[in-house]
Nucleic acid binder design. Structure first.
Lengths: 138, 138
DNA sequence: ATACATGCAAACACTTTGCAGCACA
DNA sequence: TGTGCTGCAAAGTGTTTGCATGTAT
């Protein structure tokens, strides 16, 4: 009887998982799974992409990394915990943090969500990053 | 000389392009390219997916339809012209309009975009739609 | 007539999955 | 010592592209 609700059946600390977490922590520019894969491979050459994907998923579910879903592009991951917003460069595809206070009152501005239960929100700014502006010549 | 700057080299009215536009206009729930493809195929059975994609692109560039890029999901298209925001159901993947005034002052809240030239923004609410809430039992 | 557009199939980018064997707790 | 995890390969989505042919202008 009452043997603890069998929550979270996933808790094994493999080398691969540790390396994936370490890689996300060390990469500060919103690495894609491919970026993480490359970094981990330096120390553990025969890790598979599948394992990287699976572990990024596990870590994201646990809240140890943040998954940033980017329209038309690979998912990005980062280690920042507080919610923040992103900007995506339409030239190079890069993703950058934007300094803007978290819009905690934004829900109040929704006049009608048609019965939709909003759990979180995301704001993405589209434009051109400073590097690409220089390169493009304005 | 001076023969008009050769802008937009693409302006041919094919049946396929007209049908694609008509399909987007007739579908009111943010159709994906696949939805559009299915509808067009009823009238023009051997249109190819490539043509649908190409025409959705052309129409979006011309501003005749609005492309809604959804993270982790196919692009959606709609015919509404005024800017508005969207909600994405994490259960069924559906995309819905949200009634919220356009946040024209949002740029002023960005304290530092790090040289990024912001051209537009998008807000996506994530959660569960009313249909799926019923189905899920709460 | 001629260039843009189409249709087909193959290629592409990103991610997930089935399965046999392995290793952490 | 069992089951969660790994590696591999194959499959799955969604979209783009090369090329020969077709067609709107």
């Amino acid at each position: 009887m009452a043997t603890q609700t069998a929550e979270r059946a996933t808790t094994r600390n493999t080398i691969q998982r540790a390396l994936v977490l370490e890689a996300v922590r060390s990469l500060h520019n919103h690495p894609t799974s491919a970026d993480v894969y490359e970094v981990v491979r330096e120390k553990h050459p025969n890790i598979s992409r599948a394992t990287v994907y699976r572990n990024l998923g596990v870590l994201a579910n646990r809240g140890e990394v943040l998954r940033v879903e980017v329209p038309n592009g690979a998912d990005r991951y980062d280690f920042l915990n507080r919610p923040h917003y992103h900007a995506k460069c339409r030239v190079c595809g890069g993703v950058f943090d934007v300094d803007m206070p978290y819009q905690s009152d934004i829900l109040a501005k929704v006049s009608d969500a048609h019965g939709f239960a909003i759990e979180e929100h995301e704001i993405i700014f589209n434009g051109v990053c400073s590097e690409c502006r220089k390169a493009e010549g304005r």
